[in-house]
């Protein structure tokens, strides 16, 4: 299964990755190979097998509605590349996206 250039561009955009045209070519090939590999799984008969979403085998793992102290503002912002008055700062985003 060969991914088209358009499909690779779309996937890159969804993953927020800026790709050069060489990279697009390279990943197109690699992604296609991954899909081929996954495709092999389709040859297994899974007609009577329930889908597995979680391998822990657990259910209803929940916690009580109680609070614990949060990080300090200073700690929360420790890794921010830019901060101001207690906020994380990023370059402007507008609703148009």
């Amino acid at each position: 299964m060969k991914l088209t250039e358009e499909q690779v561009k779309h996937v890159a955009k969804l993953a927020n990755l800026p790709l050069t045209s060489e990279e697009e070519e390279k990943y197109s090939e690699q992604l296609s190979k991954i899909l081929d590999y996954i495709e092999q799984l389709n040859s297994v008969d899974t007609k009577d097998v329930e889908p597995t979403f979680n391998v822990s085998g657990q259910s209803n793992v929940m916690s009580e509605d109680t609070t614990v102290p949060s990080l300090s503002q200073e700690d929360a912002l420790l890794n921010a590349s830019k901060k101001e008055k207690g906020f994380f700062v990023t370059k402007g985003v507008f609703e148009e996206e």
Partner: peptide, 13 residues
């Protein structure tokens, strides 16, 4: 919560 100020966006989590 995002606050847009000029060319920057402030984020409060």
């Amino acid at each position: 919560k995002l606050t847009h100020i000029g060319r920057e966006t402030l984020i409060d989590f």
